[in-house]
Amino acid sequence: MSLSGPLAVIADIHGNALALAAVLDDIAALGVTRVVNLGDVFSGPMDPAGVWDLLKGRDILTVRGNHDRALVDFAPEEMWETDRLTHGLLPAEAFDWIRALPAEARLEGVYLCHGTPGQDDVYWAELVEGGRMVPAPPDRIEALAGPVTEGLMLCGHTHIPRVVRLRDGRLLVNPGSVGCPGYTDDRAPAHVMMTGTPTASYAVVEAGTAGWSVTHRSVCYDWDAAAEQARGHGRADWAKVVGTGWL
């Protein structure tokens, strides 16, 4: 372990500027000055341009998520509906920033990615069974961690706050989602994920003499206003999950 001081870990903002503002305020209130971002920054029908306004100019190490990649790799007519809507709401400078994002990063003994090493759209600590998310077995988690030498591994993508300790002592942490507490995925195997709370999630990690400590934070904000933003863009499905945590 070599990280000095606490590190705030955010992920899966998904265009929810109101949630992001609350999380950044909470981080500041804790006195934490270092933040990393695990991707899927903008894709969502709330206020992706507002997310850009909050992030631009900040010194936040960010890795690319699968929806970030979709925003720059596909033409709008080839995108999923939410990505296509987001594409039309973002300023041009945001796309230049997305294109420069790395797929993975390392920071003082910490490894960062969105999904898994080498794949931004694969679940690391979960599997899909019967249309629901379930914890993945240790052998699978450790196999995916094979190329990582860092003692702390950070990932997002599933939107589920998790801490998994590998048998060799390495720690895998998912901070949960800042701005999207549930979703449906129609790709095989089709499944649903919902946290059951509309609060904004993130984590704070810190190295200590006994190992890594992890604190998951669940932050209240005006989720009714965020739901109304989604509704205003014609997305009642997003409005329900953002406003309640349920689908």
Results as ranks from 00 to 15, higher is better:
residue 1 M to Q: 12
residue 8 A to S: 13
residue 9 V to F: 04
residue 10 I to L: 10
residue 11 A to T: 09
residue 12 D to E: 00
residue 16 N to M: 06
residue 16 N to F: 12
residue 17 A to Y: 07
residue 18 L to W: 10
residue 21 A to K: 15
residue 27 I to T: 08
residue 29 A to W: 01
residue 30 L to N: 12
residue 35 V to Y: 07
residue 41 V to Q: 14
residue 47 D to L: 13
residue 48 P to R: 10
residue 50 G to A: 02
residue 52 W to H: 15
residue 56 K to S: 13
residue 56 K to N: 11
residue 63 V to I: 04
residue 64 R to D: 02
residue 64 R to P: 05
residue 65 G to S: 14
residue 65 G to V: 04
residue 75 A to V: 00
residue 76 P to I: 08
residue 79 M to T: 03
residue 80 W to T: 04
residue 83 D to A: 15
residue 83 D to R: 00
residue 85 L to P: 00
residue 88 G to T: 06
residue 89 L to E: 06
residue 93 E to T: 11
residue 93 E to S: 03
residue 96 D to N: 01
residue 99 R to Y: 09
residue 100 A to M: 03
residue 100 A to R: 14
residue 106 R to S: 15
residue 106 R to A: 13
residue 109 G to A: 01
residue 113 C to W: 12
residue 114 H to Q: 13
residue 121 D to C: 05
residue 122 V to L: 10
residue 122 V to A: 06
residue 123 Y to A: 00
residue 125 A to S: 11
residue 125 A to H: 13
residue 129 E to C: 10
residue 130 G to W: 03
residue 131 G to W: 06
residue 138 P to F: 09
residue 138 P to V: 03
residue 140 R to L: 15
residue 145 A to N: 05
residue 146 G to Q: 12
residue 147 P to T: 08
residue 149 T to S: 15
residue 154 L to C: 01
residue 156 G to K: 01
residue 161 P to D: 08
residue 168 D to C: 06
residue 169 G to C: 08
residue 170 R to V: 09
residue 171 L to A: 08
residue 173 V to Q: 00
residue 185 D to S: 03
residue 188 A to P: 15
residue 191 H to Q: 08
residue 193 M to I: 12
residue 196 G to Y: 06
residue 198 P to S: 07
residue 203 A to D: 09
residue 207 A to Y: 12
residue 212 W to E: 00
residue 218 S to G: 02
residue 220 C to W: 07
residue 225 A to W: 07
residue 226 A to M: 14
residue 226 A to N: 06
residue 226 A to D: 13
residue 228 E to G: 10
residue 230 A to I: 05
residue 230 A to W: 07
residue 231 R to K: 14
residue 241 V to P: 01
residue 245 G to Q: 00
residue 245 G to H: 07
residue 246 W to N: 04
